[in-house]
Amino acid sequence: MISKKWLLALGVGMVLALGAAACGDDDDDGGEASASGLSGTIRIDGSSTVAPLTSIAAEEFQGENPDVNVTVGTSGTSGGFEKFCAGETDANDASRQIEPEEKRVCSENGVEYGEVQVANDALSVIVNPNNPLTCISVETLNQAWDNGSTVDSWGDLDGLDADVGDEDLELFGPGSDSGTYDYFTEAVNGEEGVIRTDYNSIGENDNAAINGVAGDEWAMAYVPYSFVEEAGEQVKALEIDGGDGCVAPTAETVQDGSYTPLGRPLFIYPSAEALAKPEFDAFLEFYIANQASLTEAATFVPMTEEQTQASEEEISKLIG
């Protein structure tokens, strides 16, 4: 009786193993007939902010080049650079520029790379729609979010343009692996990674911030622009006063550079090794050439014409 059972277990195992082998064969067979003649694997990791855009680019690209397999992961900008600089990925999505420490690791491991802008983002500060506030200055943001800040109610904040009262202030923000976190702390608190430690960390899940602010009348959070767009009436994005008056986060203000300091470029970092592969070059060119429709589909802020041109030039220089 017992031997039957072991046979069964073995059988299940073999079916799995055979399935694995069969799948492998299928993919190899498929590599021959392709209109573009391109085939291969492209492995991209990095920022969860950029990933939706890269994923949709990959999907469209694969529609035209069915034999190229693009995979996209979301380890966060920092987590992604760690893999990228170890030579484990072809390209890294980044919601901020590469840092000196990461550059050092890359060059130690002999990983050379380029930097290509793929879209813009308006890092948006959001509050509940019932909050009467419409605009907030960078100084006030700093007061609320700075390392060691003891502000715990709206009444503690200076320079508000509306009478918000003295309700408890609830803060939501991403975790420290996030490029959004790096960028916000740098722009608002003057140094990357400097921030009060007693806010609600939502990790890489920006929806938790949307839900938090939608559900708590006196909450505040910062999220990438695409989340604000998709959330609609649930939350209100504040105008930001960076010293030259209040500016709302919109595609136009980000593109013309007036939404400071929270407008930011989003990047992809291709490695030199990947750039030597024709299928990767084709993907990168496709990404930039179609950035207008891709950013629209993924609700990102598109690049301006100059930015697109700069990216195209960068790519042709990299491909050489």
């Binding site: 993919d27 492995r43 994923s55």
Partner: peptide, 19 residues
């Protein structure tokens, strides 16, 4: 472990290049 969020090919358990 590098599990991807976007991948369109069936898994190949022993191939480190396959997502």
């Amino acid at each position: 472990f590098g599990a991807a969020i976007f991948v369109t090919t069936d898994p190949q358990p022993f191939n480190s290049d396959a997502g």
